[in-house]
C-alpha cells in the first residue's frame, strides 16, 4: 500500500508504450470513409423522395390550383373535369375513424406490455404484435371484408363504407402505435418511476406522473407513423370501402363509401386518359402536402402538450 507508482514517472513504462503513427494517420481516413458512406447513403436513400416530388410537380403542375382541391370530380371519364374534394374529405373520415379505434387500443396494449404484463405473456403478445405488423395489407382488406363489409354470414354488415374501411385501417395502425408506446414507456428513466414507487405510488400513478414529459413524444411519433401508413393504403380499402366520386351521405351502408387519395391515384392511373394521368400526379402532390400538414400538426400538438402540461 505504501508504494505508489505514477506511470508518468516510469520512463521504462512510457518507452514500452508503442505509438503507432501509421494508425493515427489512418484513423482520420477511416473517419472520412464513414462520413462519405453516410452522405452517399443519404443521397441514394432520399433520391426517390425528391424524384417523386419533382416528377409529380413537373407532370401535374397544370392542375395544381385551388379549384382542384375544392371541387368534386365531374366529366367523362369521371374526374376529367373538377377536382378531388371527395378524396380529401374521404381521407379525413378514414383517419378519424381509424384513429378512434387504433389510438386507445394501441396505447392501451403498449401500456399493458410495458407496465403490467408478465414476462412470458409479454413475449407472446409482442410476437403477435410484430406478426400483425407483417401482415400484407391486402390480407387486412379481406379480413375487413369478412368482418365488416359483407352482408353474408356473421359480421357487422356495414357494407362498402367509411366505417368498414376506417376500422380495417385502424387494425393496421394499432400494432404500430402499440410498438412505439411500449418503447416510449420503457425508455422513461427508471429513476423517475422508482422515485414515485418509493413514495407509495401504484405503477400507473408512477407512470402517469411522468408520461407526458417523458413518453408522450414517442407515443405521438407512433400515432404519426400510423396515420402516415394508412393514408397510403389502397389494398385494405379495395374490399371494404372502394371509392366514391361524391361525398358520403353516412358512414355505413350504400351511401357510406368515401373517396380516398391513394385510391384516386390508383384508379386514375388505370384509366386510359392522359388528363387523368396528369391529375393522378397532381393528386400525389396534394397527398404529400396533406401528409406534411398532418405531420406538422401532430408535432405542434406534441410540442404544446410537453410545453404547457407540466
Amino acid at each position: 500500500m505504501e508504494k505508489t507508482t505514477d506511470i508518468r514517472d516510469d520512463d521504462e513504462h512510457m518507452a514500452a508504450f508503442p505509438i503507432n503513427r501509421g494508425y493515427l494517420k489512418r484513423k482520420k481516413i477511416y473517419n472520412g470513409i464513414a462520413a462519405l458512406f453516410a452522405v452517399i447513403a443519404f443521397i441514394i436513400g432520399s433520391f426517390p423522395v425528391f424524384h417523386i416530388i419533382y416528377e409529380a410537380i413537373a407532370v401535374g403542375h397544370q392542375y395544381l390550383n385551388w379549384n382542384f382541391v375544392s371541387t368534386l370530380p365531374t366529366g367523362f371519364p369521371i374526374g376529367a373535369k373538377g377536382g378531388m374534394l371527395n378524396a380529401i374529405i374521404g381521407d379525413v373520415y378514414l383517419i378519424v375513424i381509424s384513429s378512434t379505434l387504433a389510438i386507445p387500443l394501441g396505447i392501451g396494449t403498449g401500456l399493458y406490455l410495458s407496465l403490467f404484463g408478465k414476462k412470458r405473456t409479454n413475449g407472446i403478445l409482442r410476437l403477435l404484435n410484430e406478426l400483425m405488423l407483417g401482415i400484407p395489407s391486402v390480407v387486412w382488406g379481406i379480413v375487413g371484408f369478412y368482418i365488416f363489409s359483407t352482408n353474408a354470414g356473421p359480421g357487422f354488415h356495414l357494407g362498402f363504407s367509411a366505417l368498414a374501411g376506417g376500422l380495417t385501417l385502424g387494425f393496421i395502425m394499432t400494432p404500430i402505435i402499440t410498438l412505439l408506446t411500449e418503447q416510449a414507456v420503457n425508455h422513461i428513466p427508471a429513476s423517475y418511476v422508482e422515485g414515485a414507487l418509493a413514495m407509495g405510488a401504484t405503477k400507473w400513478q408512477a407512470t402517469e406522473a411522468v408520461i407526458v414529459k417523458a413518453a408522450m413524444g414517442g407515443i405521438f411519433i407512433g400515432i404519426l407513423l400510423g396515420v402516415m401508413n394508412i393514408i397510403g393504403q389502397t389494398a385494405p380499402l379495395l374490399f371494404t370501402n372502394y371509392y366514391n366520386t361524391g361525398l358520403p351521405t353516412g358512414i355505413t351502408g350504400s351511401g357510406g363509401a368515401v373517396g380516398d387519395m391513394a385510391m384516386l391515384i390508383f384508379i386514375y392511373i388505370h384509366e386510359p386518359s392522359k388528363i387523368l394521368h396528369y391529375k393522378a400526379e397532381a393528386a400525389s402532390v396534394v397527398l404529400l402536402l396533406f401528409i406534411l400538414i398532418i405531420d406538422l400538426g401532430l408535432r405542434l400538438i406534441s410540442y404544446l402538450t410537453k410545453r404547457f402540461i407540466l
Binding site: 418509493a198 413514495m199 414529459k213 407540466l310
Partner: peptide, 22 residues
C-alpha cells in the same frame, strides 16, 4: 399493503431524481 408501507417509509436516492414537473 405495499402502498401503505411506503407512505410510512420515505426514500431518497443516490441520483437526485425529481419528476419532470414543477
Amino acid at each position: 399493503d405495499v402502498v401503505e408501507l411506503r407512505r410510512d417509509i420515505g426514500m431518497v436516492f443516490q441520483n437526485p431524481n425529481p419528476f419532470p414537473k414543477s
